[in-house]
Nucleic acid binder design. Structure first.
Lengths: 355, 355
DNA sequence: CTGAAAGCGCTTACAG
DNA sequence: CTGAAAGCGCTTACAG
């Protein structure tokens, strides 16, 4: 892989054409006030010489790096690809680059990650905060992607309403004993989703919540969740706060010989990469990540512009309104009508249902 | 979220202390030749004033941005989190930032992505190329992460040997009719893995390869792979080139009432996020992504240093040796001894095996 | 329509 | 041990 130093700059172009660097700069930036013919000649020479503007020179002069930071609680999080892709796309569309910073799940590293980005001169940053973390004062414009129930300027999916949709859907299917699967009690997002599910299910529905972290703490990582017991007790649906846990439930149920969706329905959240290809495919609640990213980046750019107005040590308020982006139900094969009576029949007169 | 302009620079510190900017610079960069007492005073003042060095100023002066690019074929790829996390970690350890560029699966966008990074002034970049793509001459140091069978300077896991380990493991378990699951015929990585699996399985083993892309093209996205037929034909193991396809196989088999691992073993690659938590957990072949990232970043930094030596338009050769990083088998519950006889018995005298 | 000049913040020889 | 000066490449008033 060869690499050659172009070393072409505005001066080189100016020298080649016998004009001034100011004129070259103006011509290339299309700021007008250069004759069309000269612009054409300058453009041609620039491309012949393989001119690539120096981002450092421009950044130093303008005070803007053209780079946005993306702070993530944990890149290993299965939802991260969607977020990163959407933010990168939104940023590129706006002419910005994206610098990533991973706090690898540790709260302490979140501050480090933010500081690294500031040292690299980002113009602003999108932060997906660690559960429950409040972002302290950051010395540059910030947009937060989190749950709407988090205080502060955030853009988020309407997790509660997404949960409500899941609950209503399951209720409409006839389910009235539902197991809810959460991971961690401290997560705003998860609590919103679960609250919404209970809400949508209605008061008539019996509900039990299992916290995966708590179960694993007691029984070890990757242990069974004991869902077959739930089915034995008459639960007919399992609603998880993430497709990862929905998948876990699906495979555990299948392994225990419980058919999904005939004997138990399973729902998840986020439409993760595997959700459409498992058998049966997972019914899930999807966020419009593209829209969330667009809103976050828009808010950020407005804040950056506003910030530029106050060069004299004044604080600029980033006033992104709290946005709730609607979620959408993706109905797939892992959910079906409640068949509790049939299950009961099977249990009492075993074999009757099989040919 | 308030944000204040620090506007503190070397001059401000120098002025506050009545010394020169050169001294402040030397003191802060620890280049010596400043008296310890002065260094201390300068440090103190700098931190009091909230001094953050200007990356633009430094970059302009030194010609180095301190930023590495990471070009990805598709952020949505399930392996991406591991790669991104490892590269980010390696880069941060080396004092670099990471700018991401996603080519969203389109080959044409790979060049765009690379150019965007060059325009942002990265010192070098790590490229995970799209299947079969050759990276053309890029005007900055490049390290490629791909299959070792790709020509050019690459660092990669030893996919072939990983496959061989899987094959030997399955053979040792007694499997002699194995279905291989690939996605795309053009992928070097997949062909290496599959070749290795066949190699490890040995000549005595009957092997059949299913290409998911081809099946989906015929039967639609997310369709069944028809694996139950394979079991009926006497195949007892399914070895996939990725955990994603292994998961697909696992759930399809489960859904068809075939027990894993009792009646069929399933193996994957990459130890994706879900692999440890499904039931049964997936046996998989894991890369040491941390090591791969370290090697890639190391090679890149050497290339960057070498490059600095040739400022006069000369081409510098990036001579990262081709490195093959070993892979490691993670044995979990989705694989077991071949029980073909038992399966045969079950098929002929149905019901005999169930209580 | 074009150009000379200043200056963004930093580092690095060089001189003292 | 400390400082004056140059210059990295760019953009932007300002003058002509």
């Amino acid at each position: 892989m060869a690499s050659s130093r172009p070393a072409t700059n505005l001066s080189a172009i100016a020298a080649a054409l016998g004009v001034s660097v100011a004129t070259v700069s103006n011509a290339l930036s299309g700021k007008g006030r250069v004759s069309p013919e000269l612009v054409e000649r300058i453009r041609k020479t620039a491309s012949e010489l393989g001119y690539v503007p120096s981002s450092a020179g421009r950044a130093l002069r303008t005070g803007k790096s053209g780079v946005l930071g993306l702070v993530l609680p944990d890149i290993a999080n299965p939802l991260f690809p969607q977020i990163a892709q959407a933010i990168e796309k939104a940023a590129v569309n706006a002419g910005y680059g994206v610098l990533i910073a991973d706090s690898r799940g540790e709260i302490a590293m979140q501050t480090d990650a933010i500081n690294r980005l500031i040292e690299r001169g980002v113009d602003g940053m999108v932060i997906v905060p660690r559960r429950g973390t409040r972002i302290g004062d950051v010395d540059c414009p910030v947009a937060v992607i989190d749950s709407p129930s988090t205080p502060g300027n955030t853009v988020a999916a309407d997790h509660w309403d997404g949960g409500r949709q899941v609950g209503e859907y399951l209720a409409a299917l006839g389910h009235n004993k539902v197991v809810l699967l959460g991971k961690n009690r401290d997560s705003n997002v998860q609590n919103d989703r679960l609250g919404g599910i209970r809400d949508g299910l209605g008061k008539a529905c019996v509900t039990e919540t299992l916290w995966v972290d708590a179960i694993e703490k007691a029984d070890g990582a990757g242990c069974r969740l004991g869902l077959a017991d739930g089915v034995a007790e008459g639960f007919t649906a399992f609603a998880a706060v993430s497709d990862l846990h929905a998948l876990r439930a699906l495979t555990e149920l299948q392994r225990e010989g419980i058919e999904v969706p005939e004997e138990a329905s399973v729902t998840g959240f986020d439409d993760l990469i595997f959700s459409a290809v498992v058998t049966p495919p997972l019914t899930t609640m999807r966020m419009d990540m593209g829209r969330i990213a667009d809103l976050a980046v828009d808010a950020l750019l407005r804040a950056i512009d506003a910030d530029s107005g106050f060069e004299n040590g004044l604080a600029a308020e980033v006033t992104a309104e709290i946005s709730k982006v609607p979620m959408a139900l993706v109905m797939r094969g892992s959910t079906g009508k409640k068949k509790h009576d049939a299950i009961e029949a099977k249990k009492t007169t075993a074999g009757e249902l099989t040919p």
